[in-house]
Write a protein that binds this DNA or RNA. Structure first.
Lengths: 271, 271
DNA sequence: TTGCTCCTCACGTCACGTGAGGTGGC
DNA sequence: TTGCTCCTCACGTCACGTGAGGTGGC
């Protein structure tokens, strides 16, 4: 018979663990002194302790370890359990490896910029939406050309929605597409109400499974820099821009343009 | 201004998370209605939310995220933090990969044996100890030759310790070494007391950094099978037997040999 | 008799998910 | 007025580590 301290020593576990396993019914001491409450273990029980350690070392939870030890599952059930575990572990390894890559990307960035960059990119899904839209054409991607066009389209969109008693069900969204040597511009908004006869296009804006997003603050004159930072991040972090255009979501456009807040969204896939 | 629900939607987080970040002081709403307690967020705050998400996505704890956001550490401090993180992550990836390999080894084993093997190997460090020892020679590794020798040595060891008033400070240990075409056998035991003049060798049994261990139950006649199972496990799980002999630790040798409990220890290194 | 070992609570860990029970706003 | 959103607790998660406060055995 071993006292709990002796047994902990041969089994190379903490006394606390043995008490814990006792509390869970996983490993009951061979004898418990009814007066003092002292636990005594038989040498024999080291085998069971080892089973517990070996199984939990595979990452199996103690509850499930108890099932395996006491309910003697069939080989088929064990196989299933281990395959499941294998899948989970493979997923975790992949996730942690990706995380490691992101940390390394940050480190490279910080070497270059010598400060924590202020741009924080988040990859997230974007919901689709049914929207009303108006389109226009700008002469180039330059702010001087495109700014007024977007501004005009948004104003026109708001006005027509007003007339048709449509209410905004979310922030307005715009995107650009090169067309010949000019640029197609679309402004749209999710709505509540009935859009018939408002003279507005109805469009189903598709959901994006993964979009790299970045919050741009301030005037639209500098939005190109934010697009570039976002594109660089995508490259650096092992993503790839996917088919589909980038979107601009106008989260806040009241008052001075210096206080505007725009979210850029670029659809991506894991490279 | 966004209500908590709206802000959660654009930020793609749960309402609970926003409340949590508020409670931690990580992301306080721009305005809180003093009557209803309703939280309202400015579009602007999405940038801070994204910083929080980006940093915690690197596996940085929220406490440390708060420090990074509010205490504006220097580039050097950030580098240090990220390097630390990189090291931890690399370690985790290695550990999870090793775990995955063990699960796969189990799966291979179960394919062959069609049942959960009863042998559970645990790799653990073994403490060194100062021991008294007696040596002998057996004709071969066969049980018929070696059994009586070990038995005799243990009896002689116990008797001499008794005579010198030495007390066992732990279980007796034996090991074998081939010598010419016979086998050297050593039996030893940690002790309490003063061993001078007992006619016993004093030996420093070295600690093992990593030993693959297995509990053998029952007669020593079948110990060879346990050694083989242990050796197979070492191969299958990416370890290598290291220099140094295997040890047998006699955890329980009272009464019938069918009830004996022996721990086998083989020093290993990660392959 | 003095240490040493053992005992039983019970809190803390980490980032939330998930109710319970209740109230404010369109 | 009815849903819908929001509010504040507070427990649960997982496998123990770490005291606090106290008692038994050599």
């Amino acid at each position: 018979m071993f006292s709990i301290g002796e047994f902990a020593k041969v089994g190379r576990v903490s006394v606390r663990m043995l008490r814990h396993y006792d509390a869970l019914g996983l490993l009951r001491p061979a004898r418990v002194d009814s007066h003092s409450g002292y636990r005594y273990y038989a040498a024999d029980q080291l085998a069971r302790l080892n089973r517990i350690l070996a199984l939990s070392d595979l990452g199996i939870g103690l509850k499930q370890v108890a099932e395996v030890l006491d309910e003697r599952p069939s080989a088929e059930q064990l196989r299933g359990m281990l395959r499941l575990r294998r899948g989970e572990l493979a997923e975790r390894v992949a996730a942690e490896t990706a995380r490691l890559a992101r940390v390394e990307a940050r480190l490279r960035l910080i070497e270059v910029e010598d400060a924590m960059s202020e741009v924080d990119v988040v990859v997230k899904p974007v919901e689709g939406a049914r929207v009303v839209a108006v389109g226009g054409i700008a002469e180039s991607f330059e702010y001087e050309d495109i700014g007024p066009v977007v501004g005009g389209l948004c104003a026109s969109l708001a006005e027509r929605m007003e007339r048709a008693s449509l209410k905004f069900a979310g922030p307005a969204i715009a995107w650009y597409e090169p067309a010949d040597d000019r640029v197609h511009v679309q402004a749209c908004a999710p709505y509540v109400g009935s859009p018939e006869g408002a003279g507005l296009d109805e469009v189903e804006l598709p959901a994006l499974a993964h979009a790299a997003t970045l919050v741009h603050r301030g005037t639209m004159a500098t939005i190109a820099e934010s697009y570039q930072a976002l594109a660089r991040w995508i490259d650096d972090n092992g993503y790839r821009a996917e088919a589909g255009h980038a979107r601009e979501v106008y989260l806040h456009t009241d008052g001075d343009e210096a206080g505007w807040v725009t979210e850029l969204q670029i659809p991506v896939s894991a490279a």
